[in-house]
Design a protein around this nucleic acid. Structure first.
Length: 256
DNA sequence: AATAACGCCAACCGCGCGCTG
DNA sequence: CCAGCGCGCGGTTGGCGTTAT
């Protein structure tokens, strides 16, 4: 079998997304054939996790997120998946890339300039480098501190601490459009084309609208166009699924 | 305006782990 | 116990956009 490699086309994204939303996540090796994709299961999994999965937060890292990454990297080393667990909506790949391309240099530089300085003191240089902290809409983000030091962090606990807050970029389309993009939002719909600055081009890649949120109930994913939304301000949504809470990290099998 | 250098990030690759028969 | 399979993780690469010359 000659699997296709390289960048995913909008049509491939649509096929994968539609298949998973319809059938849920089961066996990745079976996905390409069933979804009509010329990719291997591994590639499909990666694409879903890093790009298509609902709840992903795209765009610049906030100062709080930066600090969390730096702290946890110092504590855990290059365990990106564990670090990413503390950053709702971020993937391990995204955290890893951000560290390698930016934070590592910054920390190294800080240590060289002042060997006694703490690597975690990032708040004084958050406007350096490629990070553009526009009006920080994620000031309401779940505090990373709430995830730390609870031993075997489970995303579920995020929801248990109160109403789940989630950056639900995929839902934006459900609201026609929408003003978040117009404000230079840090979050973009992964089904939009984006430019390198994380600004949506305003046109879904496949020309369709995606007015639903993926959710997984009883092991089966379903479209949930109505199971939202409260408090859209600042790009956050309180998700109120009956019997299910989605916190943007791992959205299957969440029943409380 | 052309192009070289650089940086970012999506995707690939290889390895290890856990599960199952 | 062992082999096969699927999955997840971390390291690395390659493409593309941006910036500098």
């Amino acid at each position: 079998m000659n699997y296709k490699k390289g960048l995913w086309s909008p049509d491939e994204d649509r096929r994968l997304r539609d298949y998973i939303l319809k059938h849920g996540l089961s066996c990745w090796s079976a996905v390409p054939g069933s979804a009509g994709l010329q990719r291997n299961g591994k590639s499909c999994r990666l694409r879903w996790i890093n790009y298509l999965r609902p709840g992903l937060k795209r765009g610049n890292f906030s100062p709080e997120e930066e600090e969390t990454v730096i702290n946890l990297q110092a504590k855990l080393g290059n365990r990106w998946s564990q670090i990413a667990m503390h950053l709702p909506g971020r993937t391990d790949n995204e955290v890893k890339n951000y560290w390698n391309s930016y934070l590592k240099k910054r920390v190294t530089k800080a240590q060289n300039s002042d060997p006694h300085a703490s690597a975690t003191s990032s708040s004084d240089c958050t406007n350096q480098g490629p990070v553009k902290h526009e009006e920080e809409p994620n000031s309401q983000m779940i505090s990373p501190a709430t995830h730390v030091d609870i031993g075997g962090f489970s995303p579920k606990l995020t929801a248990l601490n109160g109403l789940p807050r989630v950056l639900f970029g995929d839902c934006l389309q459900a609201n026609g459009g929408d003003s978040l993009h117009d404000r230079g939002e840090v979050m973009t719909n992964p089904w939009h084309n984006t430019n390198p600055h994380g600004e949506a081009s305003g046109q879904a890649t496949d020309g369709t609208t995606n007015g639903y949120a993926g959710a997984c109930m009883n092991g089966e994913m379903q479209a949930q166009p109505e199971a939202l939304l409260q408090n859209q301000e600042n790009g956050f949504f309180d998700i109120l699924f009956p019997g299910l809470v989605y916190d943007g990290m791992d959205f299957c099998d969440r029943e409380f």
